[in-house]
């Protein structure tokens, strides 16, 4: 396959940035998108040019590090697929592919396609945990049965990989899907119920402080989420938040 890539180049957070055009030749359709980028980078290095910086690590769709906005969609055209699991067979010979970083005020560009997602960590630090010490002297794991239905829903919410595609997909740069996944996981489990109110208040507050936008229910986040986190979680978080707001802070 021969392709034309239009790639966002930005030499650091303060640089204005621009698109640059790169032809790539003899691409095998079985290559992953990132392997195609590797080939391009090898070429750039051999020509003495600056390779394109992008984040990636596990390359099996679970670490959540890869983050490319491909042809107007986070992680590209395939549903429920991260960029590292996107294969070139999803494109046609002769295609022009536009590659940009996640764009959100809360995710500043580090270089080219790599962005800083530390805001997500800070939201988790605000309350994304159960306050239990790590002594191991808790009660037996089977002491509290959890209805399978709730356990499954909590698991589905917990599969969020924290990549930020939901924010990149949203016209408001809202992080509601990400935050609600964590809020839901704990709200659905008995272990998390104790602190549920405080948790949702703190996490939503931090989300606002980080500069993420509001949710206007367009559902773009759910459509683009590579692991299929459901909008149902946002509804649950709104209920949790409302109920927390109506009860006293103490």
């Amino acid at each position: 396959m021969n392709l034309t890539l239009k790639v966002w180049r930005q030499n650091g957070p303060d640089d204005k940035g621009h698109m640059e055009i790169y032809p790539v030749k003899d691409i095998n359709p079985d290559m992953s998108f990132l392997e195609m980028m590797d080939v391009l980078n090898e070429e750039l290095i051999s020509e003495g040019k600056d390779p394109i910086a992008f984040d990636h690590d596990c390359r099996e769709g679970i670490c959540g590090m890869c983050s490319m906005f491909i042809n107007g969609e986070p992680h590209g055209p395939e549903r429920r697929t991260t960029t590292c699991q996107l294969h070139m067979r999803s494109f046609k010979d002769g295609d022009t592919i536009v590659v940009e970083p996640w764009r959100s005020a809360a995710f500043p560009v580090i270089k080219d396609l790599a962005v800083d997602r530390a805001a997500f960590d800070r939201i988790q630090q605000a309350g994304g945990y159960v306050s239990v010490n790590t002594s191991g002297n808790t009660i037996d794991a089977n002491a509290i049965p959890v209805p399978k239905q709730n356990a499954d829903k909590a698991f589905n919410a917990a599969t969020c990989i924290g990549c930020g595609a939901c924010v990149a997909a949203c016209k408001n740069s809202s992080a509601m899907l990400f935050v609600s996944a964590k809020v839901s996981q704990y709200a659905l489990l008995p272990q998390g119920k104790v602190e549920a109110k405080e948790r949702v208040r703190k996490m939503v507050n931090q989300m606002d402080l980080e500069g993420f936008g509001n949710c206007t229910n367009t559902g773009a986040c759910e459509a683009e989420c590579p692991v299929g986190i459901s909008l149902e979680n946002i509804a649950r978080m709104n209920r949790e938040y409302l109920s927390a707001s109506l009860s006293s802070a103490e």
């Binding site: 159960v130 239990v132 808790t138 009660i139 037996d140 794991a141 909590a154 698991f155 272990q191 998390g192």
Partner: peptide, 13 residues
């Protein structure tokens, strides 16, 4: 296992 369940790790049930 006890520790992880207490932390809210959603193991299969």
């Amino acid at each position: 296992i006890d520790q992880c369940v207490a932390q809210g790790v959603p193991f299969a049930r």
